[in-house]
């Protein structure tokens, strides 16, 4: 029987959502066009070619190497794209994802990526077209609520603040806001104004956000209610402390 990765313990909705984010089996909720994505990322003009830092690998004549034969380069690496970044911020008030789970999602499901996990933001560096693929995946699926998550390249403050009256996470650069029931973005991720407004979709209701979140909270699903998670966290901590991750010593 083929082994199936289990990803994360636990029986609660939060544990189930964490498994979904890690495995990449998430529901697609909205559509964002390639041009819109390119505009809000702000790295190049939509419709233009990807700038490159080296010629395509096929033209370069790579040295003989068993690892290079074994590992197929990503599309971005094949074409010689620049390395570019996308950065997300997720509110602590039941945002669907968190920096850790965005990083798990990226590292498990995509290749050639360098995820950076911080307390309030998560950045991914990759070849430009590979990075766009990740950004599109995370923006279009249930990993992102346009009101509770934000695409923010710089000036990320807001993830730990209370939400605004309209249920949107605070953004001091006003990159995105609620207009007629949908979230509109009229600046790119670093705060430069863009020509047209990009529709990021409808925000999740409070109930839906509570259902789709990967955050344990006492006012939603408390961490201590998930006995299996607690048991495994205790086990990891105990074994790390007592045996320094050397199970052989324990036996």
């Amino acid at each position: 029987m083929a082994y199936e990765a289990q990803f994360y313990p636990g029986a609660t909705s939060v544990a189930e959502n964490r498994r979904k984010h890690m495995s990449g089996k998430v529901e697609k909720l909205r559509e964002i066009s390639d041009d819109d994505l390119t505009i809000i990322l702000g790295h190049r003009v939509p419709g233009t070619d990807y700038p490159s830092t080296h010629p395509p690998l096929a033209e370069m004549g790579e040295p003989e190497c068993s690892i290079r034969e074994l590992v197929e380069p990503t599309d971005g690496a094949k074409a010689g794209d620049r390395v570019r970044y996308v950065q997300f911020v997720d509110s602590m008030y039941n945002a669907p994802s968190t920096p850790y789970f965005r990083s798990y999602n990226t590292a498990i499901n995509f290749r050639g990526v360098d995820p950076g996990t911080l307390s309030g933001r998560q950045v991914v560096e990759a070849r430009e077209r590979d990075m766009e693929e990740i950004a599109k995946f995370q923006l279009e699926t249930e990993m992102t609520c346009p009101a509770l998550s934000g695409l923010r390249g710089a000036t990320v403050h807001g993830h730990s603040l209370r939400l605004q009256e309209d249920g949107v996470m605070f953004d001091m650069l006003d990159r995105r806001r609620l207009e007629n029931g949908t979230i509109i973005m009229d600046k790119d991720q670093v705060g430069r104004p863009i020509d047209n407004k990009v529709d990021l979709g409808k925000p999740m209701s409070d109930e839906e956000a509570a259902k789709r979140t990967t955050i344990y909270r006492v006012d939603n699903v408390p961490y201590r209610e998930d006995k299996e998670v607690l048991e495994w966290v205790h086990r990891v901590f105990e074994q790390r402390t007592m045996y320094g991750y050397k199970p052989a010593v324990q036996e």
């Binding site: 710089a154 000036t155 403050h157 001091m172 006003d174 670093v190 705060g191």
Partner: peptide, 22 residues
């Protein structure tokens, strides 16, 4: 409360006017 800047304080867009509606 959190301050609302008139200009982008840092990053590639530093100095760009913000015009925050709040």
């Amino acid at each position: 409360g959190p301050r609302l800047p008139t200009k982008v304080p840092f990053g590639p867009a530093v100095g760009t006017p913000v015009h925050h509606p709040v």
